[in-house]
Nucleic acid binder design. Structure first.
Length: 898
RNA sequence: GCGAGAGUGGCGGAACGGUAGACGCAGUCGACUCAAAAUCGACCGCCGCGAGGCGUGGGGGUUCGAAUCCCCCCUUUCGCACCA
């Protein structure tokens, strides 16, 4: 596939045993050990194991089959593989599967642009990427592989959809969508850029469509409260989800409309017909305590009352149209300006007899949140204040800040939103904000005008997509029976193969026959639903399917899923912090409530990795500069860079995310060809903590490569196996201490996801082995070196699995057990105790010297030794010691007077 | 605007409140070599000849002792963003 001859640089790796150069040839070793693992099915586990081992489920977010793996994949799968191999060595039965998130728009784009069928494009990409992943030497159970575009997968998703429907978790409702009139499809918010479709460039329209929704809001309370128990998730992600779900406590109250009084003849409207249904306007507020500070009521332009007003008042209609033309994204850009239109209608205050307030249509009120209507309290809400100042509305203050004088306190340009005491508020006067809220809600309830409510920001999940390459939504529309679920025995609803992409819109809709079916209920001609599922649905249950990937008769086999789930360690990018992870949490609850599984939280542990970045290069500053690939650039000793071929000067840009447009990508396949998988894995782990963004550098990879060679050389340098000697000399003992401390340190680092620290400890062990190589011969030293090299290999195995096998095979030519099947090394406790510890000696917290004492020495002895240390004694001369602090095995600190 | 992180040598980064800079990268010098690569050895925070002093974004504080804990500020990254 990839050819090494095109690589411009790289180490000269000759065949093993060549006269010069490194002896360890990864090109020979890596495929050999991959084949060995595969032949022995080292990483296969049963759906329902009977070996009694504790289970551990490691999962990395599955890839979209774009065609090639990228460095982000390499990092993701390396991190997961380290965990999987480590846990396996620790005695766990490890489930570590892989598959493909294979539906989605790029396949359709390829079909449109290049005439390749989406299925063909997708499967070719999967084949290419599978081959690349296999070259990484991952400890995967490939028998569980699937792609979400396989009917064998999506048929079960259709079954789940129908079960969710039965359980009331699926709804069909009208909703406003972003509609691209050129592509003839709904766009997600992220696909609308500056009010235009991201592909067509056409202005996006707001359109009301009937769409399928998952009722994720039904689970809002538990999706929020469970976050508190998810202590193995990053705090950041939990917070983001919490904000996204957006619980708020407040009140819902109904304002009665005041009778219509035509004090201004220019308002030609009359909504006082008894059956109009506009006699009350419901609002949501988190500040019922500020009700006496009301000065207006405002409704969203999409509010039904606004439409009713617009039908009678052309000026109002024009204002509403103006608001609608400002798309959602544009509104976000122009956040400052608030606009409104006075309807002429008025509402009564719930508590103040005879007081009425104007009803405005305002662009800053959102129909999607709360009730689409607010009461305006300008003194204590910044938005309301901006609006009131612009339209010269009253600003009565009703919350007095602590210490402020009620006679002089006034609102300027800033609303007062802090704590305080209610005033100008009749029965609320004197109460603090919280007490006033409760009192106001009680009063509203007593009058049957309102009640306390909990409001959520989370909206239901719209899953309809007018696209071909997705899971068909398994329902049929019948003119007589309405929406009819496809019966189980007619599943799967397969995508037709013979589709065309020569015109905009949904190919399923254009297909000559596919959508025409008979109603399963009454038998009359009916239509298939042509919407397909959002691809986030596919990824909302794949983790459970892996547990029983070959089951054909049902989506999930309970015994298997209940055994393996939840995922013990999930690893992926932070970009999925909200959508994928929240949808999966919802879906898992849905699967539980429809009887498919027992767990309700899918991912017990979550780790979010950083990105892989790289320098970018271009030929000149400004718009004329051409981006260059890293392999086109040659670094100069003076730090500048030039073009490898033309010699042109090159501008070295920022270190930023790898992207095709900036050409600062590094192809993992190329790296594996030149350096091997172990080198790539080692470098990616060693560079920095895995949760942070890392920089991919040529020098770093080369350094990692040198280390692989060095480890092999250390192994070649040790003698044949021998029984443990009775006595070990001092160099040997020193080495053995390092060896066993390294076992403890690397174990701890791996448990903590501090893989860069684990790498550092292994470098230290290698350095200690090198020191021992140079030491004079003594009894037991050879044995200790051999032990150290074995430990080095075995501790490195989760990171560099091929090299570890090669080293152990070298040391044990007749061995039949693979390192992949070895248990994790155990440190000998005796060797973790040093025979001497270095105590820092401080005077007034400043280091003045060190003393070496036996571990756990008595305080008196340590202090005496510290005072005797020449440098310390010198500094203490003539001073009065007022206090002597001794921290066992660590420090002595003298506090002196004067 | 709101919320949450992060600021440590030339770089990536280590460091239970206890010897700041482990380990790696880059660099300097040396050995080997006709030479280069590879390998090996030494050095490698700043000031100072030295003794020593100064150093973890800035300023305060707690403590015998602070990169670490607390308060204020600065910079920066990310998330949400007219959410009533």
């Amino acid at each position: 596939m990839n050819d090494t001859t095109s690589a411009p640089v790289g180490p000269a790796v000759g065949p093993a045993g060549a006269a010069d150069g490194p002896r360890y040839d990864f090109r020979d070793a890596e495929p050999k050990w991959q084949a060995a693992w595969s032949e022995r099915a080292c990483f296969a586990v049963a759906d329902v194991p009977t070996d009694g081992k504790p289970k551990y489920y490691v999962l990395e977010m599955f890839p979209y089959p774009s065609g090639k793996i990228h460095m982000g994949h390499v990092r993701n799968y390396t991190l997961g593989d380290v965990v999987a191999r480590y846990k396996r060595a620790r005695g766990f039965a490890v489930l570590h599967p892989m598959g493909w998130d294979a539906f989605g728009l790029p396949a359709e784009n390829a079909a449109r642009e290049r005439g390749i069928h989406p299925a063909k494009w997708t499967h070719e990409n999967i084949d290419a990427m599978r081959a690349e992943l296999k070259r990484m030497g991952l400890s995967l159970d490939w028998a569980r592989e699937f792609a979400t575009c396989d009917p064998e997968y999506y048929q079960h998703q259709q079954k789940l959809f129908l079960d969710f429907m039965k359980a009331g978790l699926v709804e069909r409702k009208e909703s406003w969508v972003n509609w691209d009139p050129v592509d003839g499809t709904v766009l997600a918010n992220e696909q609308v850029i500056d009010g235009k479709g991201w592909r067509s460039g056409a202005p996006v329209e707001k359109k009301q469509l009937s769409q399928w929704f998952f009722s994720i809001t039904k689970y809002a309370p538990e999706l929020l409260s469970a976050l508190d128990t998810m202590d193995r998730w990053p705090e950041r992600v939990r917070l983001m989800q919490s904000n996204w779900i957006g619980r708020s406590e407040g009140a819902r109250l109904r304002f009665e409309r005041a009778p219509w009084k035509p004090d201004n003849a220019s308002f030609p409207i009359d909504l006082d017909e008894p059956d109009a249904g506009y006699d009350k306007i419901e609002v949501y507020t988190t500040r019922p305590d500020t009700l006496f500070g009301m000065s207006f009521l405002a409704i969203a332009p999409e509010h039904p009352l606004a439409a009713a007003v617009g039908a009678r008042d052309p000026k109002a209609a024009a204002f509403i149209a103006e608001c609608r033309s400002m798309g959602t994204s544009e509104a976000a850009i122009e956040t400052a300006e608030k606009h409104g239109h006075d309807t002429g209608l008025r509402v009564k205050h719930p508590f103040i007899e005879g007081a009425t307030y104007p009803v405005w249509i305002a662009n800053f009120v959102l129909m999607e949140y709360g009730t689409g209507a607010i009461f305006g309290c300008p003194a204590h809400d910044q938005r309301d204040l901006d609006f009131a100042r612009k339209y010269k509305l009253a600003v009565p203050p009703v919350v007095l800040p602590p210490g402020a004088d009620p006679a002089t306190f006034a609102i300027g340009k800033e609303a007062y939103v802090g704590p305080g005491t209610a005033y100008n508020s009749e029965f609320l006067n004197g109460l603090d904000v919280d007490a006033a809220k409760r009192a106001a809600i009680d009063a509203l309830a007593a009058r049957r005008m309102g009640e306390g409510v909990t409001n959520w920001r989370l909206r239901d999940w719209g899953v309809s997509r007018q696209r071909y390459w997705g899971c068909p939504i398994p329902v049929i529309h019948c003119d007589s029976c309405g929406v009819v679920p496809v019966p189980d025995d007619q599943l799967p609803v397969r995508l037709p193969d013979d589709v065309t992409f020569d015109r905009p819109g949904n190919p399923l809709d254009h297909h000559p026959t596919w959508k025409h079916v008979d109603c399963p209920r009454c038998g009359k001609p009916a239509r298939r639903e042509t919407d397909t599922c959002d691809t986030f649905v596919d990824s909302s249950w794949y983790f459970a399917r892996y547990c029983c990937a070959s089951a054909t008769d049902r989506p999930l086999v309970r015994a298997a899923v209940d055994h393996w789930m939840p995922v013990d360690q999930y690893i992926g990018g932070i970009e999925h912090a909200i959508l994928h992870l929240l949808y999966s949490r919802f879906f898992t609850r849905g699967m539980k409530d429809t009887g498919h599984i027992a767990v309700e939280e899918p991912f017990a542990g979550l780790f979010t990795q950083g990105m892989v970045n790289h320098e970018s290069y271009r030929t000149a500053a400004g718009p004329n500069g051409m981006w260059l690939y890293p392999e086109e650039v040659e670094k100069q000793p003076d730090g500048t860079a030039r073009h490898r071929v033309t010699g042109e000067p090159v501008i070295v840009g920022r270190v930023e995310a790898m992207s095709k447009s900036r050409r600062n990508t590094i192809d993992p396949g190329d790296i594996i060809n030149r350096y091997g998988a172990d080198t790539a894995r080692w470098f990616i782990l060693s560079d920095n903590p895995p949760e942070r963004d890392m920089e991919w550098t040529e020098a770093g990879v080369a350094g990692a490569f040198r280390f692989t060679q060095r480890v092999f050389r250390l192994a070649e340098g040790v003698g044949p196996a021998a029984p443990k000697p009775d006595t070990v000399g001092s160099h040997g003992r020193t080495l053995r201490r390092v060896t066993h401390k390294t076992i403890a340190a690397v174990t701890g680092a791996l448990e903590d996801f501090a893989f860069n620290v684990a790498v550092a400890r292994l470098y230290e062990l290698a350095n200690a082995i090198t020191d021992a190589e140079r030491a004079a011969a003594e009894p037991g030293l050879d044995w200790a070196r051999r032990e150290a090299v074995e430990v080095l290999a075995r501790l490195s195995a989760p990171m560099m699995p091929h090299l570890a096998e090669e080293v152990m095979a070298l040391l044990h030519p007749d061995a039949t057990t693979l390192v992949a099947d070895f248990p994790w090394p155990e440190a000998e406790p005796d060797l973790l105790i040093a025979d001497s510890v270095t105590i820092a000696v401080q005077i007034m917290g400043k280091l003045r010297g060190t003393v070496a004492v036996p571990p756990d020495s008595a305080a008196d002895a340590v202090i005496a030794a510290a005072e005797a240390e020449p440098n310390v004694a010198n500094a203490l001369a003539g001073k009065r010691i007022v206090r002597r602090i001794h921290v066992p095995n660590r420090i002595v600190n003298f506090v002196i007077a004067g």
